[in-house]
């Protein structure tokens, strides 16, 4: 039966996926800690506090989690998915430091993953590369449509986040 094969193959796929992302995560965490030790991340956070601060009211001013969130969003916006994941994971672990109940997601975590999963982007690099690969005459044809769709998705995500938060608290 096909399902037997699926179950066994999936374990292999997940190991392959781990091997794919692990070296990139290790590399970027190394680079990120240089940026953190030099104070660059903090500067970035301060610059973006005005924009991101109101979305994350329970993060204290100047806390490092905001810089990781900002770095993750910036990497995503420029279509650098591989750089975005390590920053995202760091953002989550520093948000966990602020979290009172370690088993339950905090409001900032949910706002962050909502922005992240809605795929905020300005340059959808992966899709442009794919379109080039398949011989498109105009590989950037869908950039405008993508920006419009993803903005609507992110904005509505923030709206749903707000609605559910009010329901839960």
């Amino acid at each position: 039966m096909k399902i037997n094969e699926t179950i066994l193959n999936s374990t292999k796929i997940s190991l392959e996926l781990l091997l794919q992302i692990f070296p990139v995560v290790a590399l970027w965490l190394g680079i990120a800690s240089i940026a953190s030790a030099s104070g660059l991340l903090e500067k970035l956070a301060n610059a973006l506090t005005k924009v991101l601060g109101p979305l994350f009211p329970d993060i204290p001013k100047g806390h490092v989690s905001l810089s990781y969130i900002a770095s993750n969003i910036i990497a995503n916006v420029f279509g650098l998915g591989s750089a975005a994941t390590p920053f995202g994971l760091k953002a989550m672990s520093s948000l966990q430091e602020l979290n009172e109940d370690k088993k339950t997601a905090s409001r900032s975590m949910i706002t962050f993953t909502t922005i992240n999963t809605s795929g905020v982007t300005i340059i959808p690099t992966t899709i442009i590369a794919l379109r080039i690969l398949y011989g498109s005459k105009n590989p950037t044809a869908t950039v405008l449509a993508t920006i419009l769709a993803t903005s609507l998705s992110t904005l509505s995500g923030l709206f749903f986040d707000y609605l559910y938060r009010r329901k839960h608290e």
Partner: peptide
């Protein structure tokens, strides 16, 4: 990655 079991409304909003 941070051991959270209860994601509350995270999946729904996303």
């Amino acid at each position: 990655s941070i051991g959270i079991k209860n994601t509350r409304y995270a999946l729904k909003t996303s």
